[in-house]
Amino acid sequence: MSTIQSIAENYQSFNPRAYLQNNYVPPRADFSNKDSVVPWKLQCLADACAKGEIGGQTLVDIGSGPTVYQLLSAFELFKEVVLTDYLEVNRKELKKWLQDEPGSFDWSAYVNHVCSIEGKGESWQEKQTRLRERVTRVVPVDIHQARPLGDAFAPGSVDGLVSSFCLEACSPNYEAFEKALQNVTGLLKPGGHLLMIGALEESYYLAGEARLTVVCLTEEMVRKALRHVGYKIRDFRTYSMPPSMRIGVDDVKGIFFTWAQKQGHN
């Protein structure tokens, strides 16, 4: 049986470049294919952010990994963005991109696609520059701690959270997944918003030499966890992974997207 500690040890062999290659180039990131999973994720995020309800001072991305696509709509609504990851290799990969260093992953097709679906008529270069400027820090996170960011943020001080493929991929079982969700939710102000993307019915994924275990979740399990830790679900969508997207790097059956709002009053 996996434990939190064994999962943490397993992640030490996580290869960010292999992970990016497996998930963030075609066929999974094919912007010409309406059934491709990446455009679906970007559309979900853009739709929630277009409602005019999300925003504030600080947006924290929980478990960014080596990716920034999950922020391309939400970052516009906040004055500062904080990226977080448990692994130093991922934090290094993020910093490389933020500083536009040679060899950093090219997210331009993503930025361009989000510009087109948002329809504001701006160039992707402008949006990309703005995102780089908006990110103030890249810090360590441990979702299994009551204060996942340590002393970096007081409980209840953050206006928005984003998290993609983190909680279920770093927890040994459903109880640990729900507890991790509770821990990160502690960062949010009452009334604050969570945008979360995750895997449905997945037991493992590959990232180079690393084979990482995943809590096998159903839509009902995710909804239950959100309700338990005090969210009102504002939107919930699911995507079934078509055969063309099943490329042997995981056994994921589907993806969920949720926009949820923390209940309670300031």
Rank of each mutant, 00 (worst) to 15 (best):
residue 221 M to T: 09
residue 138 V to L: 07
residue 191 G to F: 02
residue 111 V to C: 12
residue 246 R to N: 10
residue 44 C to A: 11
residue 65 G to E: 05
residue 4 I to W: 02
residue 156 G to F: 04
residue 258 T to P: 02
residue 61 D to L: 07
residue 261 Q to L: 05
residue 210 A to N: 04
residue 167 L to V: 10
residue 202 E to K: 09
residue 112 N to T: 13
residue 58 T to I: 11
residue 52 G to V: 08
residue 210 A to G: 05
residue 20 L to I: 09
residue 229 V to C: 03
residue 133 E to T: 11
residue 31 F to H: 10
residue 55 G to R: 10
residue 28 R to Q: 14
residue 134 R to P: 03
residue 153 F to T: 02
residue 9 E to V: 09
residue 8 A to F: 08
residue 224 K to F: 08
residue 108 S to I: 11
residue 94 L to V: 07
residue 60 V to R: 03
residue 201 E to N: 13
residue 82 V to I: 15
residue 14 F to Q: 00
residue 188 L to N: 02
residue 236 F to E: 08
residue 114 V to P: 04
residue 28 R to S: 13
residue 167 L to P: 02
residue 249 V to H: 11
residue 210 A to Q: 12
residue 185 T to N: 04
residue 167 L to Y: 03
residue 94 L to Y: 00
residue 150 G to W: 02
residue 226 L to Y: 05
residue 264 G to C: 05
residue 47 D to S: 10
residue 175 E to Y: 10
residue 53 E to W: 12
residue 255 I to E: 12
residue 181 L to S: 03
residue 109 A to V: 13
residue 104 S to V: 05
residue 111 V to H: 08
residue 163 S to L: 07
residue 252 V to F: 03
residue 61 D to T: 08
residue 59 L to T: 07
residue 110 Y to K: 02
residue 220 E to K: 15
residue 229 V to T: 12
residue 105 F to C: 06
residue 129 T to Q: 15
residue 215 V to C: 11
residue 187 L to A: 08
residue 226 L to E: 03
residue 83 L to G: 04
residue 202 E to Q: 15
residue 126 E to A: 14
residue 176 A to N: 02
residue 52 G to R: 08
residue 257 F to C: 04
residue 184 V to K: 00
residue 205 Y to S: 06
residue 190 P to A: 13
residue 161 L to P: 07
residue 196 M to Q: 13
residue 135 V to M: 08
residue 231 Y to S: 07
residue 230 G to V: 02
residue 138 V to Y: 01
residue 30 D to K: 08
residue 129 T to G: 14
residue 251 D to K: 05
residue 62 I to M: 12
residue 58 T to A: 01
residue 196 M to T: 11
residue 163 S to W: 01
residue 8 A to H: 10
residue 207 A to R: 00
residue 38 V to N: 13
residue 59 L to G: 04
residue 231 Y to C: 06
residue 37 V to Q: 12
residue 98 L to E: 09
residue 93 E to I: 06
residue 32 S to I: 03
residue 190 P to C: 09
residue 98 L to A: 08
residue 192 G to D: 07
residue 169 A to T: 13
residue 88 E to A: 11
residue 48 A to K: 06
residue 166 C to L: 07
residue 75 F to P: 02
residue 136 T to D: 11
residue 57 Q to N: 15
residue 10 N to K: 13
residue 128 Q to P: 00
residue 160 G to H: 06
residue 17 R to D: 14
residue 167 L to H: 05
residue 102 P to F: 11
